[in-house]
Structures are given as C-alpha cells and as structure tokens.
C-alpha cells in the first residue's frame, strides 16, 4: 500500500515545526522560507492548515516538464525533481495548479515535496499528529485531489 501525507488541519497549532524540519532535511538550515510545506494561518477562524504537494495522479508538473527532469518514484509515488536535469525553465510552476512546485533562485532549479524517500521529516516533527504518513486510501489528501479533479480543463480519464 502506497502511503501519503495525511493532514488534519484541526489538530494543527501553527508551531511550524514541520516547516523547520523540512528546511533542515533539505537544506541543513532552520529556515521556514525554504520549506516545501507551508502552514497557512487563518486569523478569522483560528484555523491553521499545513499545505504541500499531494503527489497528484494528474502530475501536471511531470507532464509539462520539457526536459524530462521530473519522474515518479516507484516506491513512494512522489514526483521527484532531478536537479541535474532541471534547466530552471519554471514551466512546471505555472502548470501545477496547487502552487506546490516552486522556483528557487539560489539554485536555479525548482523544488517540491519528495516525501523524504518515504520518511517525511514534517510528519516526524509534528507534535500533535496533524501531519501523519499513512496508507493512502484513508487520507484527507483526498480533499485536495477532489479539487484537482475540479480543474475544469481536465475531464479525461487517465491513461496511466
């Protein structure tokens, strides 16, 4: 069973440990600005929503890449950016309707969540269980995927 990140916003306290852990895992520094998971803090409702790539089946990033730099990892299902191949053209950043693949000027490449090779640092760091890494079919990530399906341009079934 493929696993995916399961996000329960109601449990999030906005501590940003996930952002810290993500930036440390990937860049060796505690800098939320470099994090691939973002916590949105809605002051009106008090709700805090951790938000990152769902590794969606549509994989707009992968399909739009003009140089074959994004591939699907067979063991985790994550869409992976091959930095050696990425030319930094940013086409994926406009193709992805979630805004979860982004250009990093420092590296001249794009970055996205890669599920940390099956051991996501954000889930490990989350002290309240708002982010867990569990069997894919029971996750709230379905809510994001529902919105992926609502992208009106895409009413086809999948060939893959």
């Amino acid at each position: 069973m493929m696993k995916s990140l399961h996000i329960e916003a109601a449990k999030c306290t906005g501590c940003l440990q996930c952002e810290m852990a993500c930036s440390f895992e990937n860049y060796g520094v505690f800098n939320p600005a470099k994090s691939r998971i973002k916590v949105f803090d809605f002051h009106e409702t008090g709700l805090k929503v951790p938000y990152t790539c769902t590794q969606c089946a549509e994989a707009w990033c992968l399909k739009a890449c003009p140089v074959d730099a994004i591939t699907k990892d067979k063991s985790t299902g994550a869409m992976m950016v091959n930095e050696a191949t990425c030319v930094g053209c940013k086409v994926c950043t406009i193709a992805c309707p979630f805004g979860t693949i982004n250009y990093v000027a420092d590296t001249g490449k794009v970055q996205k969540c890669d599920l940390c090779e099956g051991s996501p640092a954000c889930a490990d760091a989350c002290p309240t269980g708002a982010i867990t890494y569990i069997d894919a079919d029971s996750t709230g990530i379905d809510r994001m995927r529902t919105w992926a399906a609502k992208l009106e341009n895409q009413t086809a079934g999948h060939a893959d």
Partner: peptide, 15 residues
C-alpha cells in the same frame, strides 16, 4: 513572485 504562482491557474480554471 515565485512562491505558489500555480494557484493562479487553479483559481481561474476551477472557477
């Protein structure tokens, strides 16, 4: 702006 520009597509295309 380079953070999250893709949501522009979603907001427009998902109406």
């Amino acid at each position: 702006h380079t953070e999250g520009v893709g949501v522009m597509r979603a907001l427009i295309q998902s109406r």
